[in-house]
Design a protein around this nucleic acid. Structure first.
Lengths: 251, 251
DNA sequence: TCGAATTTGTGCGTATGTATC
DNA sequence: GGATACATACGCACAAATTCG
């Protein structure tokens, strides 16, 4: 049997008290000082044990207030599939409808933003070309669950009614329908999920702990002639959303 | 201007020296003692700065040897799409073929493994029912790039030639073709990617740093009558693989 | 309302373990 | 097998936010 560290031993005891419901969701743990005395260790050990459980999503620290047993949050299921893209309205609305939740979002668009190098590469345009940049915060029953920043080459929609994704007659209708308005047939999307940690700003916007695990999805829509027409960075917090890719194939 | 921590300041200097190629890939950094003296900080600060860059994949620590500038590894592109499932052979083979790499794998199957609770739930069978469990290590040009553990209810393939996924006439042909052999039509897969960190064992098998970011994919195949026929946990290290979901839709 | 006490978060330092050369 | 170098665990001080009289 291997010797275990104090930190881990304490963390395991915390886990047990939580699993046994001795400490129920919402319960405020005793302070570090009290716990240190109770377990016969220093406050730093208590701190690190809590930290481990915070990363696991079992605890939640609130500065100046205390460390609480996390309420088990219902995770929102986000389905990505070709079918979702064919429906009217946004994919997010379809997801929330399936869960019986109200889908809303806040957005802010800026036209004429020069494309940074990485975005330009993804869109296949020269660096510095103007883009319409839109940032989104998606809400399920008024609680934030996802963030997104989308980029479209300005040249594609310039002068049309759909320059701004969230204004005009097709606001909120999704890229496919909006692009159809300017004669572009969007037929394909590529999604590249990558793991990461929430920075302070993202944690704030999403109401999650800083450093919590997130999936960052680089999504790019392509027209039938193979040109990229929109690309987006989507932040999906693991604590709040479950991502499901549906891969259907006939025989 | 905000005051920055010593650790971050040092980390930024390291980044610059790497970006400027003053420290090229493969270069062994001076020891912590030397660096501490050079930058006028303690060894702990150096350690933490290196740690940050290790997480980012820029540095690589080798115990007893030194800390090295990581060789920029070519990432293997893993495409998930309905088309991939229709091709003969495994999806992994198709991915590697597209990159001009040699796809091989090592596997180990155990029949008659009682299903743990979570696997049973995913397969829709009672806990403790027998399963065939297969663990895989996938190699591209002989270097490990992915891990996987797959579970199939024993009852489905018992007595047939395809009980063991990697033995018999259809070894390595993938779930779809093997199930066809016992009269089951597999028409759908659901993939649930989640972010995580590599534990010590995974890091060893994959030749990556412990704690490095990985995507864990829970994949489940369903037959045309909606029953789950196989489920797998796939570990995809970010440092080695890029995951692309192809979502195609006609109009 | 305000300020002092309380409580968590961050950064840094030290000691020791362990693998490599 | 000793010296070297990275990894881990632990401890301390202080900053930041909240709470409450």
């Amino acid at each position: 049997m291997r010797e275990q560290s104090s930190t881990r031993r304490v963390a395991d005891k915390f886990r047990k008290r939580i699993a046994d419901q001795e400490w129920a969701p919402g319960y405020r743990m005793p302070s570090r000082g009290e716990l240190a005395q109770e377990y016969g260790v220093t406050e730093a050990v208590i701190r690190r044990a809590q930290e481990a459980l915070i990363v696991e999503g079992l605890l939640e620290g609130r500065v100046g207030s205390g460390t609480y047993v996390a309420e088990p949050r219902e995770r929102v299921r986000v389905v990505r599939s070709p079918e979702r893209e064919r429906t009217s309205g946004s994919a997010f609305e379809a997801d929330m409808a399936a869960l019986g939740k109200r889908a809303t979002w806040e957005s802010r668009s800026d036209a004429m933003v020069p494309a940074p190098a990485d975005i330009a590469a993804r869109l296949g345009i020269p660096e510095g070309d103007y883009c319409v940049r839109t940032t989104y915060e998606y809400l399920a029953n008024d609680k934030p669950v996802q963030l997104s920043t989308s980029w479209e080459p300005y040249s594609i929609t310039a002068g049309s009614l759909v320059v701004m994704p969230e204004a005009g007659p097709l606001a909120g209708e999704g890229v496919v329908r909006r692009m159809a308005e300017v004669g572009i047939k969007v037929t394909r999307a590529a999604e590249r999920p990558e793991p990461g940690h929430a920075d302070a700003e993202e944690a704030n916007l999403l109401g999650i702990q800083k450093g919590a695990l997130v999936t960052r999805i680089q999504r790019t829509y392509y027209s039938d002639d193979g040109r990229a027409v929109e690309t987006a960075d989507i932040v999906v917090p693991t604590a709040l959303c479950e991502i499901v890719y549906d891969v259907s194939f006939g025989s």
